[in-house]
Amino acid sequence: MKPVSRRTLDWIYSVLLLAVVLLSWGYVIYASTVAAQRQLRKEYPDKIFG
């Protein structure tokens, strides 16, 4: 296995960091929408929220 260049390693680390950031933001957005739906159901139990 030949050695990997520094530029390639930097690119791989950048892509991995971007993936982690995007996944974490996706989780934050998903969790906040779930919490908002629960809160709405608690405050307005007779309404239907899709």
Rank of each mutant, 00 (worst) to 15 (best):
A19E: 10
A19C: 14
V20G: 06
R6I: 15
S32M: 14
L9S: 04
I12V: 14
D10A: 12
V15Q: 11
W25C: 06
R6L: 15
A36S: 13
M1A: 12
Y13N: 14
I12T: 06
V4Q: 12
D46E: 15
I12E: 02
P45C: 03
L22Y: 03
L9A: 06
R38E: 14
R38C: 06
E43K: 11
V20F: 10
D46C: 04
K47N: 11
I48H: 14
P3N: 08
R38P: 00
P45M: 00
I48G: 06
G50A: 14
P45E: 04
D10F: 05
Y30K: 02
Q39C: 08
Y27D: 00
R38I: 05
L17H: 08
S32E: 13
R41A: 02
D46S: 13
R7I: 12
V34H: 03
G50F: 13
W11A: 13
L17Q: 12
S32Q: 15
L17S: 14
L40R: 07
S32D: 12
V20D: 02
S14I: 03
E43L: 13
V21K: 02
K42C: 05
V28P: 00
T33I: 11
I29M: 05
R6G: 14
R38M: 13
T33S: 08
K47C: 10
Q39P: 01
G50D: 11
L22G: 02
T8L: 05
G50H: 11
W11C: 05
G50E: 12
T8W: 01
T8M: 04
Y27G: 03
W11E: 11
S14V: 01
G26R: 01
T33H: 06
T8F: 01
L22S: 06
W11G: 05
V21M: 05
W25V: 07
L9R: 10
L9D: 03
P45Y: 03
T33G: 03
D10T: 08
G26C: 01
L16M: 12
L16N: 08
I48Q: 14
P3T: 08
K42T: 10
V4K: 10
K42A: 15
K47F: 12
I29N: 04
G26I: 02
K42W: 05
Y13K: 11
L22E: 04
L23D: 03
K42H: 11
A19R: 10
L16E: 12
I48W: 07
G50L: 15
R41Y: 02
G26Q: 01
Q37C: 07
L9F: 04
L40K: 09
R41T: 06
L23S: 11
S24R: 01
A31V: 00
L23K: 04
Q37Y: 09
K47D: 08
K47I: 10
L18A: 13
V15E: 11
D10S: 08
I48R: 14
V28T: 07
K2H: 13
V21E: 00
P45L: 02
S5W: 03
A36R: 00
R7H: 10
Y44E: 09
L18D: 05
Y44I: 07
D46R: 11
K2Y: 12
V28L: 10
S32P: 03
V34I: 10
Y13C: 08
I48D: 14
A35N: 12
T33K: 07
R7P: 01
